[in-house]
């Protein structure tokens, strides 16, 4: 998977979409609902479903990170599947720190 910054991925099993903000430092597979994510032009396979242990959901506007590889992705469309990297669940990054003066 070429997870370059700005690249867009859609879930194979739900409505979720993600945009890569920071790339991983190694070759990894980004998945949603336990199933590898697809490029924007790819067809969603028939019959695939969210795996029960990857069903925590993805929240619109949240940034998700994988500490091991540094991959950071923004959820651009919400979905029932949760994001994972090589099977590791991604975690919500803390809310963006506001500037002290805006």
């Amino acid at each position: 998977m070429n997870l370059k910054p700005g690249s867009r991925w859609k879930s194979a099993v739900c409505a979720a979409e993600a945009v890569v903000v920071r790339p991983p430092n190694a070759e990894v597979v980004l998945a949603c609902g336990g199933v590898p994510m697809l490029g924007p032009a790819d067809e969603r396979p028939q019959g695939a479903t969210v795996a029960p242990d990857h069903a925590g959901g993805s929240l619109l506007g949240k940034r998700y990170i994988d500490a091991e590889t540094g991959l950071e992705a923004l959820c651009a469309k919400a979905g029932e599947g949760s994001l994972s990297v090589d099977g590791r669940p991604m975690v919500v990054k803390d809310a963006k720190k506001l500037p002290s003066s805006d």
Binding site: P5, G6, V19, V21, R22, K96, K97
Partner: peptide, 9 residues
């Protein structure tokens, strides 16, 4: 920081 880091994407 997140804004600066989002520029490449």
């Amino acid at each position: 920081i997140d804004d600066l880091q989002a520029v490449p994407a």
